[in-house]
Design a binder for these strands. Structure first.
Lengths: 131, 131
DNA sequence: CTTGACCTGATACTTAGCTATAGGGTTTAT
DNA sequence: ATAAACCCTATAGCTAAGTATCAGGTCAAG
């Protein structure tokens, strides 16, 4: 695939793809013309990058996550430790989102203010999301 | 509380607090001297901001989340709709994190590669996180 | 065999979210 | 009453992550 195709399929601009390549997030080969040649897998990688960014990861962290997928030969203990660390991190985020969700859904459902949030007596609910 | 106190208690710099005030995220009153006067609540707000950022929210979105807590008089239907939208957003994030977690924990546990990730046959696991 | 859509690298600009600096006023302890 | 530790505004600078522009090279269709 060429760069424009990948851009359309993954919903980013071509500049962004070149930028990701410079940052080592997406690999390409080159045609004789100099054109970048992407495998269809690149589309998945780019979508993964975008998803991860929305979940609060930086490009540096995402590069690490992608390296777990890239299967470096040897040194599997190190890779395993990284995967474990990332797993803990993800579970941490999930828990904090649960707290936010509970705070918000308290406002929306459990509270006895009859739908009128402006007169809700327990609106410190969101504070549970800020421990 | 004065700005330095709030900064220490919430783990950010005083510049950051002044910046948050300009962006309308943290309210203050002023002493005759011109010094900012914070309520202890500001510490919770700042921590909430930091937590939310790590979960992928921008300051603009966080301002909206905080407005749910600020109890604007009247117009509760609008506030309720916003809360509902944010709730959906949070549940969406939780789901995507679950997918990432499952992909990663597959690598770490369920896979029959005996701990050697570099020879794991099903390492497209992470792709499930990139739908 | 040229036109238009595509690609190249290099460079510069933009936005978000801070962070630092300059030049000064306030408060508190000695 | 003065030094240290705090505060003020204003302005400038920084990093991350793009986004735009320039001056060209490539390729498929007509």
């Amino acid at each position: 695939m060429r760069i424009g195709e990948v851009a359309r399929a993954s919903g980013v601009g071509v500049q962004t793809l070149r930028f990701y390549e410079r940052r080592g997030l997406v690999k390409t080969t080159r045609l004789v013309s100099g054109y970048r040649n992407y495998t269809p897998d690149a589309v998945l990688v780019v979508r993964f990058i975008k998803q991860s960014q929305e979940l609060g990861y930086t490009l540096g962290e995402i590069k690490q996550l992608l390296s777990l997928r890239a299967r470096p030969s040897g040194n599997s203990a190190e890779v395993r430790a990284l995967a474990q660390a990332k797993l803990r991190d993800i579970e941490n985020k999930i828990e904090r989102l649960h707290q936010m969700r509970d705070g918000l859904s308290h406002i929306l459902n459990a509270c006895a203010c009859g739908g009128d949030i402006s007169r809700c007596p327990t609106l410190d609910a969101l504070d549970h999301a800020a421990p």
